[in-house]
Simulated assay, not measured.
Amino acid sequence: MKGRFRPAVEDRWRDLADRPASSPHRLRTAPLPVSTRSGPPLAAVDHEGHRHLLVPIASGQRVRRGLDGPVLLLRKRPLEDAEVYQSYADLGCLRRDLDDVFTGLCEDVLEEIEGSESESASPTRDAPALKAVHRVLDRWRALFQTSGSPLGVDQLAALFGELTLLARLLEDDPSAHRLWLGPSGNRHDFTTGTDAVEVKSVTGGNALRVRVHGLRQLEAPEGGNLRLVCFRLERATDPASGSSVVDLVARALSLCDDESALLGLLVEAGYRTADAERYRSVLFRVAEERWYAVEKGFPRLTSQDLTAAEVPITVTDVEYTVDLAVEPPHPLSRTRVERYLEAMLVEEGS
Protein backbone atom coordinates (compact mmCIF):
# COMPACT_ATOMS: atom_id res chain seq x y z
CA MET A 1 0.00 0.00 0.00
CA LYS A 2 1.47 3.31 -1.14
CA GLY A 3 2.46 5.70 1.66
CA ARG A 4 2.64 3.18 4.51
CA PHE A 5 6.37 3.75 5.21
CA ARG A 6 6.22 7.56 5.21
CA PRO A 7 4.89 8.00 8.79
CA ALA A 8 7.56 5.67 10.21
CA VAL A 9 10.40 7.40 8.35
CA GLU A 10 9.21 10.88 9.30
CA ASP A 11 8.70 9.89 12.96
CA ARG A 12 12.22 8.45 13.19
CA TRP A 13 13.82 11.54 11.64
CA ARG A 14 11.77 13.87 13.82
CA ASP A 15 12.87 12.07 16.99
CA LEU A 16 16.51 11.95 15.86
CA ALA A 17 16.55 15.67 15.01
CA ASP A 18 16.01 16.46 18.70
CA ARG A 19 19.41 14.91 19.47
CA PRO A 20 21.70 15.25 16.44
CA ALA A 21 25.11 13.57 16.29
CA SER A 22 27.85 15.17 18.34
CA SER A 23 30.58 15.22 15.66
CA PRO A 24 30.96 15.18 11.84
CA HIS A 25 31.85 11.49 11.84
CA ARG A 26 28.88 10.30 13.86
CA LEU A 27 25.23 9.58 13.11
CA ARG A 28 22.18 9.12 15.28
CA THR A 29 20.20 6.15 13.96
CA ALA A 30 16.88 4.37 14.44
CA PRO A 31 15.70 1.10 12.81
CA LEU A 32 12.93 1.11 10.21
CA PRO A 33 10.16 -1.51 9.83
CA VAL A 34 11.68 -3.34 6.84
CA SER A 35 13.64 -6.58 6.96
CA THR A 36 16.70 -7.51 4.91
CA ARG A 37 19.01 -10.49 5.31
CA SER A 38 21.59 -8.13 6.86
CA GLY A 39 19.23 -6.40 9.26
CA PRO A 40 16.83 -3.45 9.08
CA PRO A 41 17.54 -0.21 7.20
CA LEU A 42 18.15 2.76 9.49
CA ALA A 43 16.90 6.32 9.51
CA ALA A 44 19.78 8.60 10.53
CA VAL A 45 20.60 12.25 11.20
CA ASP A 46 24.11 13.75 11.13
CA HIS A 47 25.56 16.58 13.21
CA GLU A 48 24.23 19.23 10.78
CA GLY A 49 20.70 17.82 10.89
CA HIS A 50 20.84 16.31 7.39
CA ARG A 51 18.73 13.22 6.87
CA HIS A 52 20.15 9.86 5.82
CA LEU A 53 18.84 6.42 4.92
CA LEU A 54 21.23 3.58 5.73
CA VAL A 55 20.65 0.33 3.86
CA PRO A 56 22.60 -2.69 5.17
CA ILE A 57 24.80 -4.40 2.59
CA ALA A 58 27.38 -7.19 2.53
CA SER A 59 30.94 -6.11 3.33
CA GLY A 60 32.14 -7.03 -0.17
CA GLN A 61 29.51 -5.04 -2.04
CA ARG A 62 30.43 -1.78 -3.74
CA VAL A 63 28.19 1.26 -3.74
CA ARG A 64 27.83 3.04 -7.08
CA ARG A 65 30.05 6.09 -7.45
CA GLY A 66 29.19 9.50 -8.85
CA LEU A 67 26.44 10.69 -6.51
CA ASP A 68 28.37 13.09 -4.30
CA GLY A 69 26.29 16.27 -4.07
CA PRO A 70 25.33 19.02 -4.15
CA VAL A 71 21.90 17.58 -3.31
CA LEU A 72 22.24 13.82 -2.82
CA LEU A 73 25.14 11.82 -1.44
CA LEU A 74 25.60 8.04 -1.77
CA ARG A 75 28.55 6.26 -0.22
CA LYS A 76 29.53 3.14 1.66
CA ARG A 77 29.66 3.61 5.42
CA PRO A 78 30.61 1.10 8.12
CA LEU A 79 28.99 1.32 11.54
CA GLU A 80 29.96 -0.62 14.61
CA ASP A 81 29.02 -0.97 18.22
CA ALA A 82 30.17 -3.28 20.98
CA GLU A 83 28.70 -6.32 19.22
CA VAL A 84 28.22 -5.66 15.49
CA TYR A 85 30.24 -4.30 12.57
CA GLN A 86 27.94 -3.66 9.59
CA SER A 87 28.39 -1.97 6.21
CA TYR A 88 25.67 0.30 4.83
CA ALA A 89 24.81 2.15 1.67
CA ASP A 90 24.44 5.66 3.08
CA LEU A 91 22.01 7.82 1.08
CA GLY A 92 21.90 11.40 2.39
CA CYS A 93 20.17 14.64 1.47
CA LEU A 94 22.35 17.75 1.74
CA ARG A 95 19.53 20.27 1.26
CA ARG A 96 17.16 20.77 4.19
CA ASP A 97 14.59 22.46 1.94
CA LEU A 98 14.28 19.18 0.02
CA ASP A 99 13.58 17.00 3.06
CA ASP A 100 10.00 16.30 2.03
CA VAL A 101 10.95 15.13 -1.45
CA PHE A 102 13.80 13.06 0.02
CA THR A 103 11.23 11.37 2.25
CA GLY A 104 9.34 10.27 -0.86
CA LEU A 105 12.54 8.91 -2.39
CA CYS A 106 13.35 6.93 0.77
CA GLU A 107 9.82 5.58 0.94
CA ASP A 108 10.26 4.34 -2.62
CA VAL A 109 13.57 2.70 -1.65
CA LEU A 110 11.98 0.88 1.29
CA GLU A 111 9.12 -0.41 -0.86
CA GLU A 112 11.60 -1.59 -3.50
CA ILE A 113 13.72 -3.33 -0.85
CA GLU A 114 10.72 -5.11 0.62
CA GLY A 115 9.65 -6.37 -2.79
CA SER A 116 13.19 -7.38 -3.78
CA GLU A 117 13.86 -9.27 -0.57
CA SER A 118 10.60 -11.22 -0.81
CA GLU A 119 11.29 -12.18 -4.44
CA SER A 120 14.90 -13.26 -3.90
CA ALA A 121 15.19 -16.52 -1.99
CA SER A 122 18.88 -17.14 -2.69
CA PRO A 123 21.03 -16.03 0.27
CA THR A 124 23.96 -14.94 -1.93
CA ARG A 125 26.47 -12.26 -1.16
CA ASP A 126 24.86 -10.06 -3.81
CA ALA A 127 21.88 -9.19 -1.63
CA PRO A 128 19.02 -7.42 -3.41
CA ALA A 129 18.84 -4.40 -1.08
CA LEU A 130 21.66 -2.50 -2.79
CA LYS A 131 20.21 -3.24 -6.21
CA ALA A 132 16.93 -1.79 -4.99
CA VAL A 133 18.70 1.42 -3.94
CA HIS A 134 20.34 1.77 -7.34
CA ARG A 135 17.09 1.09 -9.22
CA VAL A 136 15.17 3.74 -7.31
CA LEU A 137 17.97 6.29 -7.70
CA ASP A 138 17.93 5.72 -11.46
CA ARG A 139 14.26 6.73 -11.45
CA TRP A 140 14.67 9.72 -9.15
CA ARG A 141 18.11 11.21 -9.77
CA ALA A 142 17.04 13.42 -12.71
CA LEU A 143 14.76 15.32 -10.34
CA PHE A 144 17.73 16.28 -8.16
CA GLN A 145 20.08 17.28 -10.99
CA THR A 146 21.29 20.86 -10.98
CA SER A 147 22.27 20.98 -14.66
CA GLY A 148 20.05 22.71 -17.18
CA SER A 149 18.52 26.16 -17.15
CA PRO A 150 15.85 26.91 -14.53
CA LEU A 151 12.34 27.68 -15.72
CA GLY A 152 11.50 31.29 -16.51
CA VAL A 153 8.38 33.13 -15.35
CA ASP A 154 6.39 32.29 -18.51
CA GLN A 155 7.35 28.63 -18.25
CA LEU A 156 6.38 28.58 -14.58
CA ALA A 157 3.03 30.14 -15.47
CA ALA A 158 2.41 27.43 -18.08
CA LEU A 159 3.32 24.70 -15.59
CA PHE A 160 1.18 26.36 -12.91
CA GLY A 161 -1.88 26.04 -15.15
CA GLU A 162 -1.24 22.38 -15.92
CA LEU A 163 -0.62 21.55 -12.26
CA THR A 164 -3.79 23.40 -11.26
CA LEU A 165 -5.82 21.08 -13.46
CA LEU A 166 -3.78 18.02 -12.46
CA ALA A 167 -4.42 18.60 -8.75
CA ARG A 168 -8.14 18.98 -9.45
CA LEU A 169 -8.20 15.63 -11.28
CA LEU A 170 -6.13 13.91 -8.59
CA GLU A 171 -8.66 14.94 -5.95
CA ASP A 172 -11.17 12.65 -7.66
CA ASP A 173 -8.76 9.98 -8.90
CA PRO A 174 -5.26 9.49 -7.41
CA SER A 175 -4.21 7.80 -10.67
CA ALA A 176 -5.16 10.80 -12.82
CA HIS A 177 -1.50 11.70 -13.42
CA ARG A 178 -1.68 9.07 -16.18
CA LEU A 179 -3.74 11.56 -18.18
CA TRP A 180 -0.97 14.19 -18.05
CA LEU A 181 0.87 13.33 -21.27
CA GLY A 182 1.99 16.80 -22.38
CA PRO A 183 5.42 16.48 -20.67
CA SER A 184 6.00 13.22 -22.58
CA GLY A 185 5.55 14.93 -25.95
CA ASN A 186 1.86 14.37 -26.64
CA ARG A 187 0.30 17.23 -28.59
CA HIS A 188 -2.36 17.66 -25.88
CA ASP A 189 -1.61 18.30 -22.23
CA PHE A 190 -4.17 15.80 -20.89
CA THR A 191 -5.72 12.97 -22.85
CA THR A 192 -7.32 9.56 -22.58
CA GLY A 193 -6.53 8.91 -26.24
CA THR A 194 -10.11 9.73 -27.16
CA ASP A 195 -10.85 12.93 -25.24
CA ALA A 196 -8.33 15.63 -24.43
CA VAL A 197 -7.73 18.96 -22.69
CA GLU A 198 -5.28 21.63 -23.81
CA VAL A 199 -4.20 24.02 -21.04
CA LYS A 200 -3.23 27.64 -21.69
CA SER A 201 -2.03 30.13 -19.08
CA VAL A 202 -1.91 33.86 -19.79
CA THR A 203 -0.43 36.60 -17.63
CA GLY A 204 -0.48 40.35 -17.66
CA GLY A 205 -3.54 42.57 -17.39
CA ASN A 206 -6.87 41.32 -18.66
CA ALA A 207 -5.47 39.72 -21.81
CA LEU A 208 -6.97 36.40 -22.88
CA ARG A 209 -4.73 35.95 -25.89
CA VAL A 210 -3.42 32.38 -26.06
CA ARG A 211 -0.52 31.22 -28.18
CA VAL A 212 -1.04 28.04 -30.22
CA HIS A 213 1.95 26.00 -31.29
CA GLY A 214 1.58 24.00 -34.47
CA LEU A 215 -1.27 22.80 -36.63
CA ARG A 216 -2.20 19.82 -34.49
CA GLN A 217 -2.43 21.35 -31.02
CA LEU A 218 -6.08 22.31 -31.50
CA GLU A 219 -7.02 19.18 -33.45
CA ALA A 220 -9.22 16.81 -31.45
CA PRO A 221 -8.06 13.21 -31.06
CA GLU A 222 -9.29 10.89 -33.80
CA GLY A 223 -12.98 10.23 -33.17
CA GLY A 224 -12.87 12.19 -29.89
CA ASN A 225 -13.27 15.62 -28.36
CA LEU A 226 -11.01 18.46 -27.30
CA ARG A 227 -11.53 21.11 -24.65
CA LEU A 228 -9.32 24.15 -24.08
CA VAL A 229 -8.98 25.74 -20.66
CA CYS A 230 -7.50 29.21 -20.31
CA PHE A 231 -6.22 30.29 -16.89
CA ARG A 232 -5.68 34.03 -16.60
CA LEU A 233 -3.01 34.34 -13.93
CA GLU A 234 -2.00 37.33 -11.87
CA ARG A 235 1.26 37.65 -9.98
CA ALA A 236 0.85 37.63 -6.21
CA THR A 237 3.22 38.99 -3.57
CA ASP A 238 1.82 37.23 -0.51
CA PRO A 239 1.52 33.44 0.02
CA ALA A 240 -1.90 34.15 1.54
CA SER A 241 -3.18 35.34 -1.84
CA GLY A 242 -1.21 33.16 -4.22
CA SER A 243 0.68 29.89 -4.67
CA SER A 244 3.92 28.83 -6.28
CA VAL A 245 4.59 25.95 -8.61
CA VAL A 246 6.43 24.35 -5.66
CA ASP A 247 3.19 24.47 -3.64
CA LEU A 248 1.24 22.81 -6.46
CA VAL A 249 3.91 20.13 -6.90
CA ALA A 250 3.68 19.27 -3.21
CA ARG A 251 -0.10 19.08 -3.39
CA ALA A 252 -0.07 16.88 -6.48
CA LEU A 253 2.47 14.53 -4.90
CA SER A 254 0.36 14.24 -1.75
CA LEU A 255 -2.72 13.28 -3.82
CA CYS A 256 -1.02 10.97 -6.32
CA ASP A 257 -0.84 7.19 -5.85
CA ASP A 258 2.45 6.87 -7.78
CA GLU A 259 4.85 9.57 -6.62
CA SER A 260 7.75 8.21 -8.64
CA ALA A 261 5.79 8.35 -11.91
CA LEU A 262 4.64 11.90 -11.24
CA LEU A 263 8.17 13.02 -10.40
CA GLY A 264 9.31 11.61 -13.72
CA LEU A 265 6.66 13.67 -15.50
CA LEU A 266 7.81 16.79 -13.66
CA VAL A 267 11.37 16.21 -14.83
CA GLU A 268 10.13 15.87 -18.41
CA ALA A 269 8.27 19.16 -17.94
CA GLY A 270 11.57 20.83 -17.00
CA TYR A 271 10.94 21.00 -13.24
CA ARG A 272 13.80 19.99 -10.97
CA THR A 273 13.59 19.99 -7.21
CA ALA A 274 17.10 21.43 -6.99
CA ASP A 275 15.66 24.70 -8.35
CA ALA A 276 12.64 24.71 -6.03
CA GLU A 277 13.94 27.40 -3.69
CA ARG A 278 14.22 29.99 -6.47
CA TYR A 279 10.66 29.17 -7.58
CA ARG A 280 9.05 29.71 -4.17
CA SER A 281 8.94 33.49 -4.56
CA VAL A 282 7.16 33.32 -7.95
CA LEU A 283 3.52 33.35 -6.86
CA PHE A 284 0.38 33.27 -9.00
CA ARG A 285 -3.31 33.33 -8.42
CA VAL A 286 -6.03 32.29 -10.86
CA ALA A 287 -7.93 35.48 -11.67
CA GLU A 288 -10.13 33.89 -14.32
CA GLU A 289 -10.78 30.44 -15.76
CA ARG A 290 -12.53 29.79 -19.05
CA TRP A 291 -13.28 26.49 -20.81
CA TYR A 292 -14.12 26.04 -24.48
CA ALA A 293 -15.23 23.20 -26.74
CA VAL A 294 -12.72 23.16 -29.59
CA GLU A 295 -14.99 22.19 -32.45
CA LYS A 296 -16.55 23.68 -35.55
CA GLY A 297 -16.67 27.45 -35.24
CA PHE A 298 -13.74 27.71 -32.80
CA PRO A 299 -11.02 30.01 -34.20
CA ARG A 300 -8.03 27.81 -35.06
CA LEU A 301 -5.71 26.60 -37.79
CA THR A 302 -5.34 22.87 -38.39
CA SER A 303 -3.86 20.64 -41.06
CA GLN A 304 -7.42 19.93 -42.25
CA ASP A 305 -7.96 23.67 -42.71
CA LEU A 306 -4.86 23.95 -44.86
CA THR A 307 -5.90 20.94 -46.92
CA ALA A 308 -9.34 22.47 -47.50
CA ALA A 309 -7.69 25.75 -48.55
CA GLU A 310 -5.34 23.83 -50.87
CA VAL A 311 -2.28 25.01 -48.93
CA PRO A 312 0.53 22.42 -48.97
CA ILE A 313 1.00 20.62 -45.66
CA THR A 314 4.71 21.19 -46.12
CA VAL A 315 4.09 24.48 -44.29
CA THR A 316 5.79 23.98 -40.90
CA ASP A 317 6.55 25.78 -37.64
CA VAL A 318 3.12 27.43 -37.61
CA GLU A 319 2.30 29.50 -34.53
CA TYR A 320 -0.61 31.86 -34.03
CA THR A 321 -2.61 33.69 -31.38
CA VAL A 322 -6.30 33.32 -30.51
CA ASP A 323 -8.00 36.19 -28.67
CA LEU A 324 -10.56 34.58 -26.36
CA ALA A 325 -11.79 37.95 -25.12
CA VAL A 326 -13.73 38.24 -28.36
CA GLU A 327 -16.95 36.21 -28.46
CA PRO A 328 -17.89 33.86 -29.98
CA PRO A 329 -16.63 31.35 -28.99
CA HIS A 330 -18.56 31.31 -25.72
CA PRO A 331 -17.15 29.67 -22.57
CA LEU A 332 -18.65 26.41 -21.32
CA SER A 333 -20.67 26.23 -18.14
CA ARG A 334 -19.11 24.74 -15.03
CA THR A 335 -21.58 21.84 -15.19
CA ARG A 336 -20.46 20.88 -18.71
CA VAL A 337 -16.81 21.12 -17.70
CA GLU A 338 -17.31 18.90 -14.66
CA ARG A 339 -19.16 16.30 -16.72
CA TYR A 340 -16.38 16.26 -19.32
CA LEU A 341 -13.65 15.77 -16.71
CA GLU A 342 -15.67 13.07 -14.95
CA ALA A 343 -16.06 11.24 -18.26
CA MET A 344 -12.30 11.44 -18.86
CA LEU A 345 -11.58 9.94 -15.45
CA VAL A 346 -14.08 7.13 -16.04
CA GLU A 347 -12.52 6.41 -19.43
CA GLU A 348 -9.00 6.43 -17.99
CA GLY A 349 -9.99 3.99 -15.26
CA SER A 350 -11.84 1.57 -17.49
Results as ranks from 00 to 15, higher is better:
residue 160 F to P: 01
residue 190 F to I: 08
residue 126 D to P: 00
residue 131 K to G: 15
residue 173 D to G: 02
residue 178 R to H: 11
residue 221 P to K: 14
residue 118 S to D: 14
residue 172 D to L: 12
residue 161 G to S: 09
residue 195 D to T: 15
residue 165 L to W: 12
residue 208 L to Y: 03
residue 120 S to A: 10
residue 221 P to D: 12
residue 143 L to E: 02
residue 194 T to A: 13
residue 159 L to T: 08
residue 171 E to T: 13
residue 222 E to F: 06
residue 229 V to M: 10
residue 168 R to I: 00
residue 226 L to G: 11
residue 218 L to A: 07
residue 143 L to V: 13
residue 216 R to C: 00
residue 209 R to P: 01
residue 169 L to W: 02
residue 169 L to N: 02
residue 228 L to Q: 07
residue 128 P to C: 07
residue 146 T to D: 03
residue 165 L to K: 13
residue 126 D to K: 09
residue 145 Q to G: 12
residue 226 L to Q: 11
residue 167 A to D: 13
residue 126 D to G: 06
residue 113 I to R: 09
residue 197 V to K: 09
residue 220 A to R: 15
residue 119 E to H: 04
residue 150 P to V: 04
residue 163 L to M: 14
residue 209 R to E: 14
residue 209 R to D: 10
residue 170 L to G: 03
residue 129 A to D: 07
residue 212 V to F: 04
residue 193 G to A: 07
residue 139 R to F: 08
residue 142 A to C: 02
residue 113 I to Q: 12
residue 165 L to D: 11
residue 142 A to Q: 12
residue 199 V to G: 08
residue 210 V to C: 08
residue 186 N to K: 09
residue 154 D to E: 15
residue 155 Q to V: 01
residue 192 T to K: 09
residue 157 A to P: 03
residue 198 E to F: 06
residue 210 V to P: 01
residue 171 E to F: 00
residue 230 C to W: 00
residue 124 T to Y: 00
residue 125 R to I: 00
residue 214 G to V: 03
residue 163 L to A: 04
residue 131 K to D: 10
residue 198 E to Q: 13
residue 208 L to A: 13
residue 217 Q to A: 05
residue 141 R to P: 00
residue 134 H to E: 15
residue 168 R to F: 04
residue 121 A to K: 03
residue 152 G to R: 14
residue 204 G to A: 08
residue 220 A to S: 15
residue 197 V to D: 04
residue 206 N to L: 08
residue 154 D to Q: 14
residue 141 R to N: 07
residue 183 P to M: 04
residue 214 G to D: 04
residue 164 T to N: 13
residue 161 G to L: 13
